[in-house]
Design a protein around this nucleic acid. Structure first.
Length: 128
DNA sequence: CACATGACTGACT
DNA sequence: AAGTCAGCCATGT
């Protein structure tokens, strides 16, 4: 199972010898668990990992997610309003939306349509 | 060391 | 309803 994020502030639990970070690995694991056609948010992932207030760190991890193997469906992570705030980090500005629409997720004005129904909560679906 | 900058969020104005 | 602030914390300058 996933390890919980270390919440003791600047504790060094987040940096390991190989430059790999537990938080990073855990975030990748959660993102890989998002089913096709569903989306979740940075905050929901942070909450699931036990760091409600560290959603920015989740976003930071996503910034490096493009090089991990196996690849993670980074396009399924949006902000709390369903907005595609990470779109500019994909190969092209339209790539994120294209990947979502490929799995039948409609996007209008950079926002996921029917976001409430598309939302996938890791806390609920993976178990707290 | 100080300061700025984020793929963020919730509270407050 | 839209803007601002305050937490957040790794990285870069």
């Amino acid at each position: 199972m996933l390890r919980r994020m270390n919440m003791t502030g600047t504790d060094h639990d987040t940096s390991l010898p190989g430059g790999r970070r537990d938080l990073f690995a855990d975030v990748m694991a959660v993102v890989r668990a998002i089913p096709r056609g569903r989306v979740t948010t940075y905050g929901a992932i942070a909450k699931y990992l036990g760091a409600v207030r560290s959603s920015r760190m989740v976003g930071y991890c996503m910034n490096s997610s493009h090089r991990v193997r196996p690849a993670v469906p980074a396009h399924r992570v949006v902000n709390r309003n369903g907005m595609l705030t990470g779109k500019h980090h994909f190969a092209t500005p339209t790539r994120m939306q294209e990947l979502l629409e490929r799995e039948r997720v409609k996007v209008q004005d950079d926002v996921v349509v029917d976001f409430a129904e598309r939302f996938w909560d890791p806390g609920v679906h993976l178990g707290i």
